[in-house]
Design a protein around this nucleic acid. Structure first.
Lengths: 237, 237, 237, 237
DNA sequence: CATGAATGAGCCTTCATTCAT
DNA sequence: GATGAATGAAGGCTCATTCAT
């Protein structure tokens, strides 16, 4: 399991404790899937290895997820949930859209610095299950964007263009950082650049992008219950 | 074979004609690979289907490429070559870095509008063989970026941030357009947004982004040795 | 649960009511098995789906049947019992072997007309558990056959040949009818043909085969212990 | 490989010699499939065992048959072809429909006597792939039936009833014989019984059913080419 | 060079059966 | 007696790759 900043690691691993049996097994399987995805890539991960890493058999995996595809999706959902939860928590007291935007962007880049393997995993899962991950993450970005516009800080050409700018640039920068291709302070530079793309002048953009990141808080350990995907014995026709 | 704007289609298909036999077979195989990649996605494409679409056998494919991976890479190289060739040709007379940048960006978005299937293919191949495709394409963007900086039009935070901005935003916008998620005039909005991110004020950025795209010219048709018309490989759709 | 003529349906479903608990659970499981067999075929039926349709868990099934094979056999026994019961009841007052034979044959063909799904289920179970189903059903046919011989109406080549004739022809005709391949009045034609094969002349054979079928009577409803109405298992279609 | 009467064995095995490579492999696989079907039953036969018995790998089987189901069908086709070929050859000089019918019926029963394992295999395959086997075999029976009717020997109630009689009775009798449940001379008794069911009087029916079976001739070794089912690399969507 | 049959490792998925609670 | 999570042994099928012709 690649190293992950403590608050996030907790958000993921703590879930396994103190859950009813079925949920705990499920959580263990998701954890195993994440490890395998990180090690081999989503595309090359196999159900057997996920099962083996979880210390279970293939059959058990299929008692919890009806398809390989579903494992990917559920991992996506879980990551999205854990990430968004933590990040929005840490932004709770920030009223300015511009700063919220900068914080959000830099948080992902900070993740890429702190644990490149996790960042690459995230990108990989996001590419494989965009519905589950990207969509959720982007909802938060969109809210901050609209807030900044309403507050007169952003002057955007179009919402669609702004979202492509934010999503595309941050994604690309995460990759650069995780792959070790980025210079120092890339996160701040990217945040500044994005804010400028959203219509802020250089100086204020830079000022906002340089404010310190609020700390991530430990999770409150809310078990993730996603409408139990227990395998129904019906399908087939 | 999905529809592709004529000048680009020519750049790809004409290659097959008038080449020495070995090279021609190779070109036909690459063409077949592109078709299969477009139809099934790079990940799901099989060597057997590529061979079948090329009207050859699996063994023949392995006479030209030693590995599946190599096929993907060579397709990447080929696409990069064909695209960059045409695009830089059309920019030959543009002296301004800012306009060259806008033209480059919009050209890719225009491709996504004109033939979404090809755009998705490009993104797919770029993800599978970044070394071959992305790197080459980005070299041109970098040149234009530096030109714009030297000319005093761009004021960037860092070259790395600027490149992530350009590459990430355009990539993301291509996807939006190709998937039919983008509003009208998305290409111009994106180009404007990118220019602003590179440090231009809104007005000049918009002005540059709105200049008409120079026409793509037909390829000069690589010197034909044998005058004989060659049947090109027929796809399935 | 596919449609089944009322008297037969009753014979099957009423069993579940007013039984001691263990027997009732067992009956519900058998009913569920029948439904699944009818829907998927005996070969494709799974223990998990039988349990699910019965509203129970796999473990419960194994508390009543030690093996999948045993479920099939018990279903065979049950069907044989229910069918023979009703059919012989309706023949109680028929003294002639020839007419009893014709009635027996036509009854099965009538079942195939009335509810093709049940007929196919019957054939399927009979093929999978011949000991349980076929043997029992044939005992009745054999009795009628001997009666007819004794009464001088049948002149058979050998008992074995006669039994193969009866069993084979009726089985095949059930399939034809259930699959919708048979012309109108196939039941009568088959009954006539069988009687001729047993040595009757055409005219009397036809006369006997055309006599009206005696009505099936409703079951006498095995002694109900608890008056409470019990919810019967609900199928999917 | 269970024992099979020489003329039929030849018809099946000789095919493998002197064929182009692909056809020979295919024939070997079909032969292996027949062996496994005979040993385990069609339902329990696995692709891996078929491959192993043929001395090849699973992949090879799938180079010749795209599906397990297709193996069953092709075995059915092959059996039908070989059987019908030999049987109709031996009837070439018989002008009477009644005798042709009796010969056809008795031939299948004779097969069941000579090699019960093959008879059971035939019944098993016929149940699993009725389109391929039953339909072909019944075409010959239908021709003889119509001939007998035209010649005034048969007086049938309906063609459909007659076909159910023939097919059902012979099938059932094959099973009885193959399972060792039938008395001596069952074949003649069955043939007589069927002829009577088709409207002949007892005496002439018995006379026809007792005529000697014409000998089976050795095969002319015509390679069976059934529109090559080579796996096409296209499917999928 | 091209052919194309063959390989074999391995993946996803299913399901009868067990067993601790 | 019922539960239901877990098991594990296969089984069908795919596909990159090899190699004799």
């Amino acid at each position: 399991m690649p190293h992950l900043p403590a608050p996030l690691a907790d958000a993921l691993t703590l879930v396994a404790a103190g859950l009813p049996k079925r949920e705990r097994t499920r959580a263990q399987l998701l954890l195993a899937a994440i490890q395998v995805f990180a090690a081999r890539g989503v595309a090359a991960a196999t159900m057997q290895e996920i099962a083996a890493v979880a210390g279970m058999t293939t059959g058990t995996v299929y008692n919890h997820f009806s398809t390989r595809e579903e494992v990917v999706q559920q991992v996506g959902l879980w990551l999205a949930h854990a990430l968004c939860q933590r990040i929005t928590d840490s932004q709770q007291d920030i009223p300015e859209g511009a700063e919220r935007m900068a914080i959000g962007n830099r948080r992902y880049l900070w993740l890429a610095e702190q644990s490149p393997a996790w960042a690459l995993l995230l990108l990989d899962v996001a590419a494989a299950a965009p519905e589950q991950l990207l969509q959720k993450v982007q909802a938060y970005a969109l809210a901050d964007l609209r807030l900044g516009v309403k507050q007169g800080d952003f002057h955007i050409v179009s919402e669609a263009a702004a979202m492509d700018l934010i999503n595309g640039t941050v994604t690309q920068a995460m990759r650069s950082i995780a792959l070790g291709l980025a210079p120092p302070n890339h996160a701040t530079a990217i945040a500044t650049t994005v804010l400028r793309g959203l219509g802020m002048a250089h100086k204020p953009a830079q000022a906002v992008a340089r404010r310190p990141l609020p700390p991530l808080q430990a999770p409150v350990a809310t078990p993730v219950r996603t409408g139990r995907a227990r395998r129904t014995v019906q399908g087939k026709s």
